[in-house]
Structure formats: structure tokens, C-alpha cells
Write a protein that binds this DNA or RNA. Structure first.
Lengths: 183, 183
DNA sequence: ACCTGAACACCGTTCAAGT
DNA sequence: ACCTGAACACCGTTCAAGT
């Protein structure tokens, strides 16, 4: 890759992080290009879809979550590992308001730039869930997709200003439900 | 109101119901006006905001939900009344994909055209919840806003194509959590 | 009173023309 | 190779002009 191309690529990601932080995942792509000091066509050359651009932002975070799951898998009790990871996953997802819908859509769309990262994250959660289930510390009738769905829904909830004040408490309720051994 | 104004008003609602059904709550207002055979300014005269237009569509449904709560309050056991209403509330909310965000925003914005309807719906749910709590059939650490939030989040989940297949099951999990007497 | 549609300031996306 | 920005087809919203 040519030096100028690489610089543009990097500046686009920097600008995107700022703009998405301010306006959410539906932020204007024109504004990203503007802020990066780059033509609009250059943005499309580097990131042909909005997903591709977000993937550039989120990949490192996804990887961190998967790594965290591996760490918890050995460092904590099955129940505590699962609960901690659930809470951290929700907290992290709330940060990217608007990205939750994209994440959810990407998990069943193999063509999405976010697909691989989503699948990896689900796999990490599945590991923790299975371990907790084997220890009798989580409901047996849940799978990794359910966990992913619950994290997404609670993150959506936390991103709604009107509901955010109760989000932590409601997450407690859901965590209780996930960890109830019966059914 | 003049006869032509009334006819335009009604046709706008008919068109809006169709267009929102097809494209969700973010549907193009231009398309609504087009489909109603009406100038764009006429739409804005009758419904000055998008909320006002949606309110026209949703008010009857909100009222039905409140009435349903009253009915269940006398016809069913406290637990069953709450659970049935929760399920029906989620099922109904899923129908209006995209409207969930608006509903949630409206409940704390007194200027929203949807505000009164949202508050009434929350009040109806609060009645059922309180009754169930007094019967020891629901967690004591939940209030009407929590119920509203959980309904919204589960409706959001059900509206995501990738998660919809598990939505019913996850609602069961949440219902179990709401009805767990402890904590 | 009520209606219309042009006008304005924005989008996302594509692509001919430049270096 | 890579970049630019005009062009196209859309938005939401406002408002002067018409009946």
C-alpha cells in the first residue's frame, strides 16, 4: 500500500472514531471524510460499506472481549466468570450506541465485515456458558446465541436515555435469570 | 374542521399505516404524503412532527393495552394477569418495529405527542405488577418503569431478524425472573 | 382556512477526470 | 494506484404563493 493511502486509511479511522463517538453508528460518512481531510470517494475506496468502516473500529474491541473470556475461563469460578463477562460485554456494547443493531445483523450475514468478529465473540461467550452449565450454575436451556441476544438487548436498553438509570438493576435481574439452575 | 381537511387527515393516517407497516417507523414522510395524494406541506400541517403522526397510529393500540390490563386485573390470578399482559405487550410492540425507540423516548418527554399514551400504558402495567407483588408472585424490587423497560427490550430483541427465533424463549427466561419472589 | 410545491440544506453512493 | 469532487437521487423541513 502506498504511503499516502495508508495515511488516509489511518486518518479515516481516527475521524470515524471521533464522529461515531459523537453521533452514534448512523453518523454521516461525509462528516467522517471531511474530518479526515479526505475526498468522499477515498472513504468509499478504503471502506466500501458502513459496516467495513465500523469493523475497522470494533475489531480490536471484539478481540479484547474474546481474550477476556479466555482469561476469565481460568481465573474465576464458572458462575463468576460468566457473570463478569456478561456485565463487561453489556457495558462495552452500550458505549457503541447504534452499533448493536449492526452487530446483531452481522452475526447471521457471512458477507458482513463484522461477521467473523461477532462469531468469535459468541464462541467466547458460549465457552463460559457451557462451563457454568456443567457446574450447575446456569440454566441449561440457553445457548451462546441466547447469551449474545441478551447482551444485545440489555445494551440496547442501556443506550436509551430514558431507561439507562435502571439498566444496571435490570441487568441484575437478567443475570439472576441466567444463573437460575432450574428449568 | 373543513370537510376536505378531515378527508386529508384520514387519508394521511391510512397511508401512514401502510408505509410504516412496510418500512418501519423511519419511513419516508414524503412517501406518506405521496401515497395519501396530498402535498407535503399538508402532512406537516396535520402532523407537525413524526411523533404526532405515529401517535395517530398508535393511540388506539395503547388504549387497547390499557383496557386489556384492566380486564386482566379482575379476570385472572395476579401472576397470570401480569405474565399474560407482559407477553401481549411485547407481541404488540414487536409489530411496530422501530417504534420502540420512539415509545421509550416519549415516556420522559412531556412534549411528545406519544407521552400521555405511554404514561397510561405504564400505569396500567404498574397496577398489574403491584397486585402480583402483593400476592408474592413478582420480585419486589421492580417498578412500572422497569416493566416498561423490559417489555421494550424484549420487543427490540424480537424485532431483530437474527434474534427473533429465540425471542419467545428468552421472554420466558425474563418472565421467570420477574416472577421469582426472592430478592 | 387550507393546500401546494418549490427551495434549502442535508444525506448515501457512483464515477469520470485528474495526479 | 490512488484521489477528488461533481452528479444523481433521495431525505426532512419551511414557507411564499395560491384557492
Amino acid at each position: 500500500m502506498r504511503a499516502d493511502a495508508r495515511r488516509n486509511h489511518d486518518q479515516l479511522l481516527v475521524a470515524a472514531r471521533a464522529v461515531v463517538g459523537e453521533h452514534g453508528a448512523e453518523a454521516s460518512l461525509r462528516e467522517v471524510a471531511r474530518r479526515a481531510g479526505v475526498g468522499l470517494g477515498t472513504l468509499y475506496r478504503h471502506f466500501p460499506t458502513r459496516d467495513a468502516l465500523l469493523e475497522g473500529l470494533l475489531r480490536t474491541e471484539f478481540d479484547a472481549l474474546a481474550a477476556r473470556a479466555a482469561e476469565l475461563g481460568t481465573a474465576a469460578s464458572p458462575r463468576e466468570a460468566l457473570v463478569t463477562w456478561l456485565r463487561e460485554g453489556v457495558a462495552w456494547t452500550v458505549e457503541y450506541r447504534g452499533a448493536t443493531e449492526l452487530m446483531v445483523a452481522a452475526i447471521e450475514d457471512p458477507d458482513s465485515a463484522l461477521h467473523a468478529s461477532c462469531v468469535a465473540m459468541r464462541a467466547a461467550g458460549t465457552g463460559l456458558l457451557t462451563r457454568a452449565q456443567e457446574a450447575g450454575a446456569a440454566r441449561a436451556d440457553l445457548d451462546g446465541t441466547d447469551l449474545f441476544a441478551l447482551i444485545s438487548a440489555m445494551a440496547w436498553l442501556g443506550a436509551q436515555p430514558a431507561l439507562a438509570p435502571r439498566a444496571d438493576h435490570l441487568l441484575d435481574v437478567v443475570v439472576d435469570a441466567v444463573c437460575a439452575p432450574r428449568s
